[in-house]
């Protein structure tokens, strides 16, 4: 075995070990349950490290909540029940996709409102540009233009 082969092998071992660490110790007898567990743990937020999902986080609380999630999935609780379990304890903030309700209207519809305002401003600007090109000349100016053109022709 060359040194290169040895280090490649070592890298591979490291990769396998870290991949193992991520799925840590939850055994499912049913692949459907495992898929639900995976999906739900990616939709729920870890409250300690707020920009990570339960699936990604290594925080102690995330592990505890994964255990709860595992228990609920094994007990065949519905998605609705599982989300209610989390929301009743930690609030809507645990859901990566917040529900549409009075306090989240701005969050859901704000970007569209901003886009409409932007479009409105853009249309107005375009219209103003159009206006400037069709500006009318005073009679005095027109006369002067005629005069200059006539002069040019003569030369």
């Amino acid at each position: 075995m060359t040194i290169k082969q040895f280090f490649t092998g070592l890298l591979f071992v490291g990769w396998v070990v870290s991949a193992q660490a991520a799925i840590y110790a939850f055994d499912f007898n049913d692949p459907k349950k495992e898929a639900r567990f995976q999906q739900l743990s990616e939709e729920l937020r870890c409250l300690v490290c707020q920009n990570q999902t339960l699936a990604d986080s290594n925080a102690g609380l995330a592990l505890d909540l994964r255990k709860e999630l595992y228990r609920l999935v094994q007990e065949e609780a519905s998605d609705e029940e599982i989300k209610n379990f989390m929301v009743s304890r930690y609030g809507d903030f645990v859901l990566y996709k917040p529900p549409v309700k009075a306090t989240t209207y701005l969050l859901w519809f704000g970007p569209f409102i901003l886009a409409i305002i932007g479009l409105f401003i853009l249309l107005r600007m375009i219209r103003n540009v159009g206006k400037q090109t069709t500006q009318t000349m005073s009679a005095e100016d027109q006369q002067r233009v005629q005069q200059l053109l006539a002069e040019k022709k003569e030369n």
Binding site: L47, V48, G60, L61, D64, L65, E68, R89, Y90, G91
Partner: peptide, 10 residues
């Protein structure tokens, strides 16, 4: 930490 979860401790 099981009771902590019921109290929403994070």
């Amino acid at each position: 930490g099981r009771i902590g979860i019921d109290w929403g401790v994070y």
